[in-house]
Amino acid sequence: MDACDSEVKRKAMIQIENVSKYYGKKPSLQGVTLKIEKGEVFGVLGPNGAGKSTLLSILSTISKPAAGRVEINGLDLKKQAKLVREQIGYVPQDVALWEHLTVKDNLIFWSKFSKQRVSKEELYELCRTVRLEEKWNEKVSSLSGGMKRKLNIAAALIHNPDILLMDEPTVGIDIQSKLEINQYIRDLACHGKTIVYSTHDMSEILSLCNRIGVLKSGVLQFSGTIAEAREMVKRKGFLPNSDEKLIYFLLQSERAEKPLP
């Protein structure tokens, strides 16, 4: 995953400063501060209700933070939401496709939502990239779960965004499709896309992400690389014998220390 590190220039694509969000009186995010760089695959970890989806919905301009500031590629998320939307591609937790339409029509329809015109040839090329070209004229309802997930990701890439926000994009699919999607995500990162990836799957985190952020009850417990996490845990006197156990420890522990910038 670090093979393409040198190819991309490091630049802060996402800057989150002290962001909070409440649903009613219940806090969903509390004072989250985070910086994600260009070409990075940033894994967002946390148990159910930790605030992962809330963080992604804020980054994708779907909901607004109650407090704090978010900058996406130098654009203020609150003031320049429309411009921000051209920079991001959002892959929701569930498949967001029109089941009664064909693969082709789904991609065409999603292309209508972007500012730029995307040709049918470009859409076919995108379809080919996710290996769905044979299903081009088939209805989405006839596709397998894995294929739908791939198309779900392709739909977010139609306007060639710099940032991809993925909310558990491989949940509930077979291992083969999951591996294909993971490889595709790695390729995207190598081509300079910044990816924020929310998942429960520890193996995905370990194989995909350059850095991780651990959320618990809306609070960012830790952010940094796996190596940094290992160092921090070691300082606390815990010596995990595997990365899975390390992440498990991070998820269980209270706020470890001040999150790394």
């Binding site: 994708s60 779907i62 939307r85 937790q93 029109w98 972007s114 500012k115 306007h159």
Partner: peptide, 20 residues
């Protein structure tokens, strides 16, 4: 049918949900 996940994604697009 669409107000769940489709509307969610549409809201993150350039033209957005109101336009849709």
């Amino acid at each position: 049918r669409e107000k769940g996940v489709l509307f969610l994604r549409i809201q993150s697009t350039y033209h957005g949900l109101v336009s849709y």
